[in-house]
Write a protein that binds this DNA or RNA. Structure first.
Lengths: 197, 197, 197, 197
DNA sequence: GATGAATGAGCTTTCATTCAT
DNA sequence: AATGAATGAAAGCTCATTCAT
């Protein structure tokens, strides 16, 4: 029985790649960079991921599932939609604080390198886990009469564009305050924008 | 008198580069690609821009000034802030329709390739033309009592994150309808989020 | 066990590069030239030397150590200083005959391309192995009363300038006779110049 | 009548090229560099010298004639050969002080870039003006019985190798004292090496 | 599974030289 | 004579990927 299973080693690679890609960008990060960070040979890397592009795609799915799972937990709670917005914003910002590489990868690698994700990750294929949960969140809010019944993408764009924009500004060190101090005003802005009237 | 002045040729390069970078990404686009699209030799390209990175930076400033100028024209109008929001959204979406490469460059190249813009374009240095005008827009709205007096970045993130997010979804061909059909709901969402209450 | 160890391959590169650099000059010799001469790909060359400049610097040190070692062997002999001069001149001329690329590299690449060796090989850093032995030779000669006690550099310049000049003339095919036939007169000239009186 | 004749402009180019080549090396110096230093366009440069290589060759001849003329003046003096050696050494070191680019060009460009001077400057073709005068100096010394009658190249190599070596050490900032302070010991060394016995 | 030397296409950039003006 | 934009070949170097061990 090996000390480290194949699955664990894949996780190590994912973790290292996520950090490197989000810090240095997809093209600037090399496979030797990743292998070295994991402490493995270049050749062996290819036993786990058959190409750089495929690694990149698995990474998006990994993040999408992680994010989706977190939203699902919030969706299941028995609280008002307004409160849920608070919690989603909190969750997102906490993630940006604690595992910044995940959000950064999303914003800077996935959203920006169409040429990489074109083949096999078109549209929302690789992020469906997360988009689906957000869809459920909106539907619930509309059903319960708390949110106005508007086009999903208008709402989705607001939510994710807004949060992404803030984290981006934060990453650029443009925000004068820590991310958390914007939570309240942002949640309120979102709720005001989406609430039924 | 030359048929094509040096300044015009620079503009040709800017135009070609903008299209290529926004379609294929910064790293996938090569200098030979750009030179060929302009109809000029590789060597001659370097008579106009001393490096690929410098070209990329001039491109951001070019777009920032273009956007800033358009917002300035709206700022100067004698109309309500609510109407100004409509116009800014319209302007942005029209740009995304007519000169998509500008918005796409912004979203996919500038915002995502820190390593390229780090040197000389840190923070908001290269986009000040445009950010400044948006600042003026908010200040005016707050002064006139139409917008609530909130942190600039909370408002800025909402505005630009939202618009960027929508154009992104559009570029991904995820939106079922043309961009323009979202104008109304988006303007309303933004206004509801920001208006004084 | 590989047929050819990594160290041997480095030696192969050193040997090929030495020949090419000394024949064609540093700038005219290309990495593809070197790789081809070794029978290796361009990319692989960089697994052994991280840049052309670094290769050039390792080459100087390689030669300096080779020369230094040979002078050391002469220094250790129990013979008169006059005889040692004979032997050093012989050794140097034999080297110029048998491994001309070493001396030529020294004269034509190292001594002439300051811009290449500036960084990390300033002054005598990369040739200390050889200079040190020559210093020992002079010191011993002075101590034993055979050489006059003069400034080291006056003596060093005479010795190396003279020998280098002759090899240079030889390389230019200007000398009417083979190098060896000048040994006697040159040794005598040097001894007459340096001997105690 | 033009303010600056064609000949004067050629001299300007020679002067600028000499400085640049000797400071930065032949390959690192570009034609635009030279043109800029002269204050002339690249295109116009080619009206004066039809290629970089040809410029390099004219430069050697220019220096050779300059050096030859100076030795000739010493040869003509009615002084002892020992004194003439003093004067040649002095002249050479003064030149290295006042017009270092000439000596440096000789040592670092002409002597080291065979590939450039091969065609049309083989052997001593481009330096005959200077070599001839040195030949005369030796012949005179031998005729007058002051120098021993030895092979010309043994003597020539000593003289020029020694002086070149010292200037080289000086250029490398290795000499602890100014060049001039070595004059006496060097002249003596040379005289001791060459004098009749 | 694991290693890392090897490949080779391709990238950015440079520069001597030309030539229309 | 003078200008400097234009050319294009070639250089140094990188890196995803393969494969013998």
């Amino acid at each position: 029985m090996p000390k480290v299973t194949k699955e664990e080693k894949k996780t190590n690679i994912i973790s290292a790649a996520l950090k490197l890609f989000s810090e240095k960008g997809f093209y600037v990060t090399t496979i030797p960079d990743i292998a070295q960070k994991v402490g493995m040979s270049v050749g062996n890397f290819y036993n786990y991921f058959s190409s750089k592009d495929i690694l990149a795609k698995e990474l998006v799915m990994y993040i999408s599932e992680y994010l989706g799972e977190n939203i699902r937990l919030i969706n299941e709670k028995d609280i008002s939609t307004e409160k849920k917005i608070d919690e989603i914003v909190s969750m997102y910002f906490n993630m940006a604080d604690n595992r910044p590489e995940m959000i950064e990868y999303f914003l800077r690698v996935y959203l920006s390198n169409r040429e990489v994700f074109g083949n096999g990750c078109e549209g929302m294929i690789c992020v469906s886990a997360f988009v689906t949960e957000l869809m459920i969140f909106f539907d619930n809010g509309v059903s319960s009469g708390e949110l106005q019944d508007q086009d999903f993408f208008s709402a989705f764009g607001l939510f994710m564009g807004y949060l992404g924009g803030m984290v981006f500004l934060f990453g650029e060190k443009i925000l004068p305050e820590p991310l958390n101090s914007y939570k309240k005003s942002i949640s309120t802005n979102i709720y005001n924008a989406l609430k039924a009237r």
